[in-house]
Structure formats: structure tokens, C-alpha cells
Nucleic acid binder design. Structure first.
Lengths: 204, 204
DNA sequence: CGCGTTTGTGTACGCATCGTTCATGAAGTA
DNA sequence: TACTTCATGAACGATGCGTACACAAACGCG
């Protein structure tokens, strides 16, 4: 539920300390970067932020929710809407930004957060609505524009195409079977758009 | 490390009790099915199997390794090698078996195991070598045959194509954004092979 | 100004689980 | 029989959890 944002502060009484809120998020983000999700404990955050445990429990329901808030606080990127008129370029541009971030510490932490979400439905929901959803909306726009321009087949199911594009990325992020290289992204986009059958390889 | 298999038993002395080993795996599998990964604790397994904690610690290095051994013990499926002469059919057949299993409890548990693997490198390695690798080898065979037959482009990178096919599956398994339906698998295979560009939609 | 309300602190507690240690007995081989 | 290895049972210190209590701090309102 990411209590840090959804819990309403009442108008009367002592107002919530923004300084304390930020201290908690910064401390949690530091711990995430240094030691990963397992380094996040309510006690460690409280100690590092110079804050009482009770204060954290008051605003966040679980350590997972603090972690994801801290992640967004530090790694949230501005979503770009490329529009070059060429769907391959648009998709690739989006993708390169994402995997560029995922190659660093942000990727390792995201993998851990997704991992924890497998046994924490609330965390899973936060990731879906706070991370996946906005990105999927941007991608859906790019795809819809390409359909409107006649670049893509009109009959295709947009969510499936998005899974084809980003599923492999998250798969590599999580399995670490192969690296998230730029070349991978390039061939991924090309294959997805053009297919892999040899009967069409002569075309273009 | 899945100590249950890799730790060598010496030739002298009291031999390892097979009955105890199976009792541990059965108990762990039961707990997995009933309560998921979080229900797996060394203490709960020991209690259920009627076995000492120390015995478990002797043979497995972590609860994750017991869990994955228990999962394989119960859900290991026989890998099929379809060879119809049509790459689309071969891939789809493989895929339908997998997502059929993933729609059930086995899928939920696999998602949890992958999740835990994000903060347990040893568990991650066990999943790679014990689960992913054998499946990828089968798929690579199917793809290689199709290349040899001339069905697929010779220049394509096989690991990337495999990620295109199975990345979206695991992505849906883990994000639960959309269901793992048979229709999804069908469109996924078709799109992957033929591409999604409209300029080629008229062909065939 | 003083009051009520809400936020934040500090301490302490009971609880659960972890991973390990130790002494002891059981079950095989040489 | 001597030796080795396996398995048990009970106990331990450590860690983090979530909560309770009393108290101090900061704000709006009458």
C-alpha cells in the first residue's frame, strides 16, 4: 500500500515531519543499494535514519512497502515518449533506456523486489501499479500509433506484443542467463517485428 | 547445491537413511503445496517429517535448497521431444505442456522459488542448472532442426529466440498481469515466427 | 493563551525462528 | 570388537518482529 503516500494526514494536530519521512526513505534506499533487500529491516532503517521504529510502523505496513517506496524515491526515471515515426526506433529507444538502468544496481534491486513480491501480494500490487502500469501505458501508446500509421498488423493483441518485447528483458534480469546487452535489445526488437521465418528473410 | 544429491556419502560408517531422506522431501513438498515457500522452515519440515533439525542441516545448506529438491521430487515432468517437421507445432506443443503445469499449483510454487532465488544465488544456480537448462536444451534442439530444415533464418541467435518464446511466459507467471492461456501461447508463437509488421501480413 | 489532537521518541517486552553446540545412541564396515 | 558415520534430543545466544506504555513536540482552533 505504500503508506508513505496513501495514508492521509489529518488537518489538525502535529503535522507529519517531512524531514523524518525523507530520512527514512534515504536510509532505506542506502541500505537497499549497499546490501540489497535482505539488508532492509525495520530496525536497521530506524537506526540509520535516527528515527523510532514505531514511526516507521505507523506509516508503512511492511518492510516491503518501505523498500519499494525507497526504490521509487531514488530510481524513478522520467518516462520518455519517443515519436520518430518509425515503430522500431521508438521501441528500441524506450528499451535501451530501461535495460541501461537495469544493468546497474537499480536492476539488481528491481529483481530482488520482484522476487519478494512473489510472496507478498501487496508488494506485487505496488510494483504492478507503480512501476509496470505506467511503462506499459507508454508502450501501448507507441504501438497504437504504429497501428494507426499502418506499420503494424491491426489484429494483434497489444498486451501480448508488450509481453513479447518486455518479457524477455525481465526474464534476463531475473534469470541472469544472458546479459542485458544493447545488441540483445536490437535483435529482440528486430525479431519481434519481422519474425524469424526464413521465407521472409529475403524481403527487405 | 541441493545437498540431497551432491554430498557424497562415505563407504564406511552408518549409511544414510533413505527413509529419512524421503520423509524430508515429502514433508517439504507437502508444506510447499499447502502453504507455499513461506511455509517452508527447517523446523516445520523437521516436525512434519519426524526428523531432527540437525539432520536436515547436515544434508542441505539452506531452506531454499530443500524446497527446490522437494519441488523437483514432486513436480519433475518428463521432457518431450516433439518432431512434427513443423517448427510452429513443435514449439507450441512444448509450450502448452509448460503453461498447463504453470496454471496450477506448480506454477505458483515455481514463481515463489524464482522469487526467492533473487536473494539466494545458490538457489538461483540450482534453478538454472536443474530446471531451465534441460528445457532450454530441448528447445534449442527443436530450433536447430528448424534451421537445418530451412524453416528459420540461419543468422538468428538461438538464445535470444528462446528468450522471446519463454521470457513472456515467465513474465506472465511472475507478474500475473495477464493469464497464461492457451490462446496467449498460440499468438505468441505465431507472432514470434511471423513478426507483427503489416507489410508482411499479406504474405501466406 | 490554553486545549485538544496528532506526530514522534525511548524503552521494554514476549514471541518466533534461526543456525549451532553438545552429549548420546544407532547402524553399518573392517 | 573397534571404528566410523548417521541421527536424535535438548538447549543456547542472536536477531528481528510487532506491540505497549509513558512522555515530549508541533500544530489548529476557540
Amino acid at each position: 500500500m505504500t503508506g508513505g503516500k496513501t495514508v492521509e494526514t489529518s488537518r489538525v494536530g502535529r503535522p507529519r515531519s517531512e524531514k523524518t519521512r525523507l530520512a527514512i526513505l534515504e536510509a532505506a534506499a542506502d541500505l537497499l543499494v549497499e546490501g540489497g533487500f535482505s539488508a532492509i529491516t525495520i530496525e536497521s532503517i530506524a537506526a540509520r535514519a535516527g528515527v523510532s521504529k514505531v514511526t516507521i510502523y505507523k506509516w508503512w505496513p511492511s518492510r516491503g512497502s518501505v523498500a519499494i517506496d525507497a526504490y521509487f524515491h531514488r530510481f524513478r526515471q522520467t518516462l520518455t515518449f519517443p515519436d520518430t515515426g518509425n515503430v522500431a526506433e521508438d521501441l528500441l529507444a524506450q528499451m535501451l533506456i530501461l535495460i541501461g538502468a537495469f544493468r546497474g544496481r537499480a536492476g539488481e534491486i528491481m529483481a530482488e523486489l520482484i522476487g519478494q513480491a512473489q510472496s507478498d501480494p501487496e508488494l506485487a500490487d505496488t510494483i504492478r501499479t507503480g512501476w509496470m502500469q505506467p511503462r506499459r501505458e507508454v508502450t501501448a501508446l507507441v504501438i497504437q500509433r504504429a497501428i494507426d500509421r499502418g506499420e503494424l498488423r491491426p489484429g494483434l493483441t497489444i498486451p501480448i506484443l508488450m509481453d513479447e518485447l518486455y518479457g524477455p528483458i525481465y526474464f534476463r534480469l531475473i534469470t541472469r542467463y544472458e546479459p542485458l546487452s544493447d545488441e540483445f535489445a536490437q535483435e529482440l526488437v528486430r525479431n519481434t517485428l519481422e519474425g524469424v521465418l526464413s521465407t521472409r528473410s529475403s524481403i527487405k
